[in-house]
Each structure stands twice: as C-alpha cells, then as structure tokens.
Simulated scan of single mutants.
Amino acid sequence: MGSYAVRRGRERVPGWFHGGMQFLALVVLLVCVALFWQVGIDGRMPVLVALWAALGLLTALAALLGLVGIVRYHTFFAALKVPLFIAALGVLIWYDMPRETIWQLSHTIMEREARECADPGRSTHVGLYTIVRMAARDGGCLFYTKSGDGTGIGYAFFPGDPPPQLGPPAPHGTAYQPWHEFWYRFTDEA
C-alpha cells in the first residue's frame, strides 16, 4: 500500500496540521526567547505582561491543537515541542538564568562605568542593560534599569564598604540585596 493509505485505523497526518504545529512551536520559541531577554534586563512591566499573555494564549492554542493531534492522528512528538519550550523557560527563570546571563555579559562594562559614576543625563546602554539614570549614593554607584512599574530598581556598586541598609528599606528608602562580590540589587521606594 502507498504512503497515503490508512494504516492500522489511523488517519494520515495532514500537511496543514504538521506545518501549523511547527509554526506554532516556532512562535512560542520566539516568545520564550523574548521573555528570557526581558526578564534578564529587568524589562518594563507592560512588555512583560504582554509577553506572558501572548505565551498563555499560544500555550492554550498549542494544547488544543496538540490534543487534536494526539487523539486523531496519534502524533505525540508534534504536541511535545511547545510544552518542552515552556518548561525550559520555567526552569531557566526558576534558577535566575536570564538575569545571570545578562549580568555575566555586562558586569565588566558596568564596573568601569561605576568607577566614574557619571550620570549621562539620558537613557543609555551600559553592557546589555538600558540604564535610565546613574546616581552616586551611600558611598556607591546606583544604576537604575528601566522597569516602568514606578519603582526604581537596578544594580549598585559598592567597592569598599557594603551599603548602609541591607534588607528591607525604611519607608521611602532604598533596599539592597547582595548580588555578586561588590554588587547589590536594589529597590528604591523614594
């Protein structure tokens, strides 16, 4: 019998289904990469929300099409790509790999800039981060990344003594958390 014949009661997988699942998997992969990037650079909240919503919708569509593929065409592998991409993204975010990866690619440039701590007066790129402001404060240099949620967040360099307030801030203050060696993550509620 030819390759178009029905085998053991299963229907042949149509080309539109296979192509559709491949396209959907590609789009999900691209959204996962965009989320990895945005999480790593402390992206703006509206962008993050839009990407998570898109991933949710694409996941629902992939689950529906994957279920059709499993039940009707017995195509398990085509249905597994999207969940694998999403699981991989979840594991990477759980272990803070987006932020760690971007950090490793940027911290030497940031350290050079922190030695001068001269605010350029406009948004600029330092390494892979978009820095909206730099400020000398508490004996260190603060790099404000763009978050867009109304809170100042970023990275602080303290080459000598640690910042004065580790842990939760006083009301309308700055909270510092250790990050790498002389670097701290901060949240500025001022």
Results as ranks from 00 to 15, higher is better:
residue 9 G to T: 07
residue 151 T to M: 15
residue 82 V to L: 05
residue 32 C to L: 07
residue 13 V to I: 09
residue 73 Y to R: 00
residue 109 I to M: 14
residue 4 Y to P: 01
residue 24 L to H: 00
residue 4 Y to R: 05
residue 170 A to D: 14
residue 13 V to Q: 00
residue 6 V to C: 00
residue 35 L to V: 10
residue 46 P to I: 12
residue 165 Q to G: 04
residue 120 P to N: 08
residue 83 P to S: 08
residue 144 Y to D: 05
residue 147 S to P: 09
residue 38 Q to M: 14
residue 128 L to S: 09
residue 32 C to I: 06
residue 163 P to W: 12
residue 45 M to C: 07
residue 135 A to H: 06
residue 140 G to A: 07
residue 49 V to L: 14
residue 83 P to K: 09
residue 99 R to D: 07
residue 129 Y to T: 05
residue 127 G to F: 08
residue 149 D to M: 11
residue 156 A to N: 09
residue 67 L to N: 14
residue 135 A to C: 06
residue 23 F to M: 07
residue 9 G to W: 06
residue 11 E to D: 13
residue 147 S to K: 13
residue 119 D to C: 03
residue 57 L to H: 12
residue 21 M to A: 10
residue 176 Y to N: 09
residue 39 V to Y: 05
residue 129 Y to H: 08
residue 73 Y to N: 00
residue 179 W to Q: 04
residue 99 R to K: 15
residue 83 P to T: 05
residue 53 A to M: 13
residue 119 D to T: 02
residue 123 S to I: 01
residue 183 W to H: 02
residue 173 G to Q: 01
residue 94 W to R: 15
residue 132 V to F: 03
residue 190 A to N: 15
residue 173 G to M: 04
residue 1 M to K: 10
residue 187 T to H: 11
residue 153 I to S: 01
residue 7 R to F: 03
residue 160 G to R: 11
residue 90 G to I: 09
residue 13 V to F: 00
residue 101 T to E: 10
residue 9 G to H: 08
residue 127 G to V: 06
residue 128 L to Q: 09
residue 185 R to C: 03
residue 182 F to N: 14
residue 54 A to I: 05
residue 17 F to Y: 15
residue 157 F to P: 00
residue 97 M to A: 13
residue 162 P to F: 06
residue 122 R to Q: 11
residue 7 R to A: 07
residue 168 P to K: 09
residue 166 L to N: 01
residue 121 G to T: 02
residue 43 G to D: 13
residue 60 A to T: 13
residue 186 F to N: 03
residue 107 H to V: 08
residue 133 R to F: 03
residue 182 F to M: 09
residue 6 V to K: 00
residue 47 V to I: 15
residue 161 D to M: 07
residue 181 E to P: 01
residue 85 F to S: 14
residue 122 R to M: 14
residue 82 V to M: 06
residue 27 V to T: 12
residue 24 L to I: 04
residue 19 G to A: 15
residue 3 S to I: 03
residue 189 E to S: 11
residue 94 W to F: 15
residue 40 G to C: 10
residue 96 D to E: 13
residue 174 T to H: 06
residue 31 V to L: 13
residue 34 A to T: 11
residue 125 H to M: 08
residue 181 E to Y: 05
residue 73 Y to K: 00
residue 54 A to Y: 06
residue 144 Y to I: 05
residue 75 T to R: 08
residue 37 W to Q: 09
residue 66 G to S: 03
residue 146 K to W: 12
residue 54 A to C: 12
residue 145 T to L: 11
residue 112 R to N: 03
residue 58 L to R: 02
residue 69 G to K: 00
residue 175 A to K: 10
residue 17 F to D: 00
residue 26 L to A: 15
residue 54 A to Q: 06
residue 103 W to V: 03
residue 134 M to I: 05
residue 18 H to G: 02
residue 173 G to P: 05
residue 127 G to N: 04
residue 98 P to T: 12
residue 124 T to V: 13
residue 126 V to L: 11
residue 134 M to L: 14
residue 34 A to M: 13
residue 185 R to E: 14
residue 19 G to N: 15
residue 53 A to D: 14
residue 88 A to M: 10
residue 131 I to E: 01
residue 93 I to C: 05
residue 29 L to K: 07
